[in-house]
Write a protein that binds this DNA or RNA. Structure first.
Length: 500
RNA sequence: GGUCUUGUGGCCGAGUGGCUAGGCAGAGCUCUGCAAAAGCUUCCACAGCGGUUCGAAUCCGCUCGAGACCUCCA
């Protein structure tokens, strides 16, 4: 059973065959650190984290590169070319790099909260100006770019004409053609520098007020919007690598431009498989700054937003995202997040208990159940191999949860299942929940002292209960509940607690 | 206007033509001093209209609705 991935390039699921197995090169477009990350940004980073983890689980040696855009992308097309980062820095009276550092730190903090593994290389745009300039020079030398007033533009028209003959027209990824683009009614102005409206900038001449600027063969300026990803992916993954990932909104023009740039420079389309995650929506609309409907990650964690009825923990959000397929839209609502919060809690508590059990060697007494469990567990990899369908894996895990809880409550005897099945199920649950899905226990391990205090209270309550002093026993339970500590009376007369 | 996606029960969401998706919420029951938790049972669905088919949420057509990209965007 082999891994299949949906390739945006072919618009179908393809068997994943690395160019140079067991090595896998994966590039994912990272954040622009000109502002705080929001819930929408969490989607690709969590989705591709799971993909990264799963590829490693399959035994691949993955080099995962995710960039940081710290030079800013720029407004274009009839608007003043202004570096967003510089502009905001002035407003906030900060050095550009100070701003970049602030939001980079915040981004890294959020990533670790989500328990995302760090990429193997996290290159920055400003750290690769030289590589970008070299790439631009090469494109000019090959005749696919031209200079105009200190700026350099990619000649889309010429590229499309020449490469269409090779079956690689501009627009092959997004399914567009230049003619359609030209038919649009959108207004064109201040575009006299460009020979064609589809041309995009590789290098922009910097106006005097522009703080971020670098020397280049074409004068002082800054790199265009798409060249950084091409330069950095080529440098660290080679001219042709396995997976290029990112949000669907980057498909055009960003990824289309990357293909054109890399194809000219390296004579190869950069990535074999293009993977795109879909958007998180809110009331059906894409969450994005253009819609002014973003929920920042810090707000999400603190609950400090009028949209939010409560805070949501990083694991709740991670679980929420994993409950859907990465290529579908996912609609945010308080109700949906609350559902995920409860579901994750239930799943985790069952898993936590089950992971600690040691099973005695025996054969199954309930063959049917044993078969069912074996089947459910076997399907984990089947579902993940089908374009990373984490939603279906989680559904199966939830079929196992009642079985685990029934074993715990002794509604089902442990020997109903064979020890082989139980051991396998225990191991696979740990692998999938913890290693692949990257879910972790959010409450820190008890320091011991707290546990001691709680055990003392539980003992006192038990005494009170045995004396039928329910006033005291309920007081202990209710007061603790008020502190977010929930007591649960177990079947055998014991009491356990969970801390919210 | 062009390109594309999509419409699943109160909410979020899987669904490869025939088999209960799953979660949360609701109802009932069991356990329990009460509760919580847990377990069991249960209600609620495939936008509409046609067509193909022995059989369609799944394929085709039309209608209506929603969204994304075409400008920075995960």
């Amino acid at each position: 059973m082999s891994l299949k991935v949906y390739n945006s390039l072919s618009r179908q699921k393809e068997i994943f065959t690395p160019i140079n197995a067991p090595y896998v090169g994966m590039y994912v477009c990272g954040p622009t650190v000109s502002g705080e990350s929001h819930l929408g940004h969490a989607r690709p980073f969590i989705s591709f984290d799971v993909i990264y983890r799963y590829l490693m689980h399959l035994g691949y040696k993955v080099r995962y590169v995710r960039n940081i855009t710290d030079a800013g992308h720029f407004e274009e097309e009839g608007r003043e070319a202004t570096d967003k980062i510089s502009e905001k820095a002035v407003l906030e009276k900060l050095e550009p790099m100070e701003l970049v550092q602030k939001y980079t730190n915040l981004y890294h903090w959020a990533m670790s909260k989500f328990n995302n593994l760090a990429p193997n290389i996290e290159p920055t745009a400003t750290g690769h100006i030289v590589e970008q300039i070299e790439m631009i020079k090469k494109i000019i030398a090959d005749g696919y770019a031209y200079e105009a007033n200190g700026s350099v533009y990619f000649d889309v028209e010429k590229y499309n004409t020449d490469f269409s003959k090779q079956g690689k027209p501009y627009g092959m990824l997004s399914g567009r053609n230049i003619e359609d683009q030209q038919d649009t009614t959108r207004e064109l102005d201040n575009q006299e520098e460009k020979r064609n409206r589809n041309d995009f900038a590789l290098w922009k001449s910097a106006p005097v007020e522009h703080i971020m600027r670098w020397q280049s063969p074409w004068g002082e300026g800054f790199p265009g919007w798409h060249i950084e990803c091409s330069a950095m992916s080529t440098k660290y993954l080679g001219s042709e690598f396995d997976i290029h990932g990112g949000g669907m909104d980057l498909l055009f023009p960003h990824h289309e431009c990357e293909i054109a740039q890399s194809t000219v420079c390296n004579h190869k389309s950069p990535a074999k498989y293009w993977l795109h995650n879909n958007m998180i929506t809110i009331q059906g609309k894409k969450m994005g700054k253009s819609y002014n409907n973003v929920i920042k990650l810090t707000e999400l964690f603190s609950g400090d937003s009028p949209i939010l009825s409560q805070p949501y923990s990083p694991m709740t959000i991670r679980f929420f995202i994993l409950q859907s397929h990465y290529r579908g839209t996912l609609d945010f609502s308080n109700e949906a997040l609350q559902a995920s919060e409860k579901a994750f809690k239930r799943l985790w508590e069952a898993h936590e208990w089950f992971a600690k059990q040691v099973f005695e060697n025996n054969a199954a007494t309930d063959i049917e159940l044993d078969k069912k469990v074996t089947q459910l567990v076997a399907e984990f990899s089947e579902f993940m191999n089908d374009d990373f369908n984490s939603a279906k894996v989680i559904a199966n895990i939830f079929e196992l949860v009642p079985i685990i809880n029934s074993i715990k409550d002794k509604h089902i005897l442990a020997n109903a299942l064979s020890s082989t099945t139980l051991d396998h199920m225990q191991a696979e649950l740990k692998v999938y929940i913890e290693s692949i899905f990257g879910l972790i226990n959010e409450r820190p391990a008890d320091e011991g002292q707290l546990d001691g205090v709680l055990q003392l209270l539980i003992d006192i309550r038990k005494d009170a209960k045995s004396r039928k002093d329910f006033l005291t026993s309920d007081k202990i339970r209710n007061e603790l509940a008020g502190l977010g500590i929930q007591l649960k009376d177990e079947k055998e007369g014991g009491t356990s607690y969970t801390i919210a």
